[in-house]
Design a protein around this nucleic acid. Structure first.
Lengths: 272, 272
DNA sequence: TAGTGGTCTAGACCACAAT
DNA sequence: TTGTGGTCTAGACCACTAC
């Protein structure tokens, strides 16, 4: 327990910067300098109180500053640790008609982890938000599927999709992740029953996680999540909507487009 | 000053939810119910201490929960206010070759505000990050342009773009926002000098604002920003990069794609 | 059992804004 | 002058983890 403080520079008593920020800066400097590596235990509240002769709250707020920027993770009752800075990249499934391997698995494998996911489907009455986004009458039946995506067994993405039951009921693809086209993607599944998706939209927001999301995704306090609302459409009619929750400190989202030649007026123009 | 507390429900002493969250929930409920409207003063630390018989810290943390979710804004030494919940939508310029009006202006006008922006261009030596992303030799000359976008005079987006000087030097479009194609967009500008952009990529991250960004964009404490790295390419060569900073609580980002017909193998597939 | 972070109390001083 | 939020101190009890 002795050496844990010796890596931290002294504070500057002349500086008008608040103590919590000075302390946060000293810890961040130790991390940037490599004196603390990802996974290492960071001096927690008690060590910081002792090292800098500050109160509990001040040490706590210094750690909160670092946690908010994703530099450290506080694990309740265990300790505080330097967070891995690796960011995964989420690149949506290429929007072609091909049946394709899931992009999630590719991303995770590239990062050297083992991907898996589970999905659970239920037929439910649409809540108002869902029926509105799917342009259904209130309370219409929808197939709701909740996904948990994992890397090395740890949940790293959550998703909930809804499809109008009227479209798929009685077909082999009524339950998204079972049957012959499990894992093939919405476009291929819908193609198989004659519904031809022609447009995709994703709307990206950012917000703090709900307590349940924070617990499942192990999102540290102060870190936000991406909330992606995806919509597949066929002939301007919504076919599938999905709400995807992604930790903001571990992912970046990549969107790529081609720009058509001058003589080619149509294709990559975004649908309305 | 009497009526300010009467709009808040009592706490539930049986509930195991922490006090700060219960209090935050009561205030949020008052906002959702319309008992507090955007711009209204929210009960601050002292009123909450009195209303719920809690300590300063607990009242403070309750407000911090609400501030992080963008529901309220704390203005130092003035008070705490309900934040406007209007979210603007950022939808990137349609990726066609047409010379188009700026999407930013359209978005802001739709929200009923008056858009404007300023831009400043300088020829500089590329810093390492920029030369790497533009695939230039270290220290090569680049045209750097910094943009501030405003709605009703208030900055709401920041951007910095870089273009290799070697591409545009001596042409009429060397300075992005002046000359005949000012405001027409990168694709049209580059087309005019025979550089035909064929791919666009945006990488979206989220992080806390830097102190300078927080001050300029008036981002409340605890709210994060989108950091978008955009890249235009021609024949796989980077032509322009831009770093765009967008307040996370006021914007959502929309990405839309068309899905080609089955017989049409090429177009909307994302470039690598 | 010792140490951790989560929550909470009860104070304090400050600079600044509004009045 | 009054009230605000920002910062800080000095305690406390808790549930849980790691050993």
């Amino acid at each position: 327990m002795a050496a844990i403080d010796t890596d931290l520079e002294d504070l500057d008593p002349e500086d008008s910067v608040p103590l919590k920020q000075q302390i946060a800066e000293r810890v961040a400097a130790a991390i940037r300098a490599g004196r603390l590596s990802p996974g290492d235990r960071v001096p927690g509240e008690n060590p910081l109180m002792a090292r800098y002769s500050v109160s509990r709250s001040t040490a706590r707020e210094a750690l909160a500053v670092l946690a908010a920027s994703g530099l450290i993770t506080k694990v309740p009752k265990v300790g505080t640790f330097v967070r891995s800075q690796k960011r995964l990249t989420r690149k949506p499934r290429r929007y072609s008609r091909d049946r394709q391997s899931a992009p999630f698995a590719t991303e995770v494998k590239q990062a050297g982890a083992r991907p898996d996911f589970s999905a659970e489907s239920t037929l439910v009455d649409a809540v108002p938000d869902v029926s509105e986004r799917l342009a259904l009458s209130p309370g219409a039946q929808v197939m709701r599927t909740t996904y948990v995506y994992r890397a090395d067994g740890h949940p790293v993405q959550l998703a909930t999709s809804h499809e109008p039951a009227a479209i798929t009921a009685g077909t082999p693809v009524a339950v998204p992740e079972s049957g012959p086209l499990a894992g093939a993607g919405v476009i291929a599944r819908m193609d198989s029953i004659g519904v031809h998706i022609d447009a995709v939209m994703e709307e990206v927001s950012v917000r703090p996680p709900t307590p349940a999301e924070a617990a499942t995704l192990l999102v540290p306090d102060g870190v936000h999540v991406f909330a992606v609302q995806r919509e597949y459409r066929a002939a301007s009619r919504p076919i599938e909507i999905a709400d995807i929750v992604i930790p903001g400190d571990r992912y970046s989202l990549v969107y790529a487009f081609s720009v058509p030649d001058a003589g080619d007026p149509s294709t990559s123009d975004a649908p309305d």
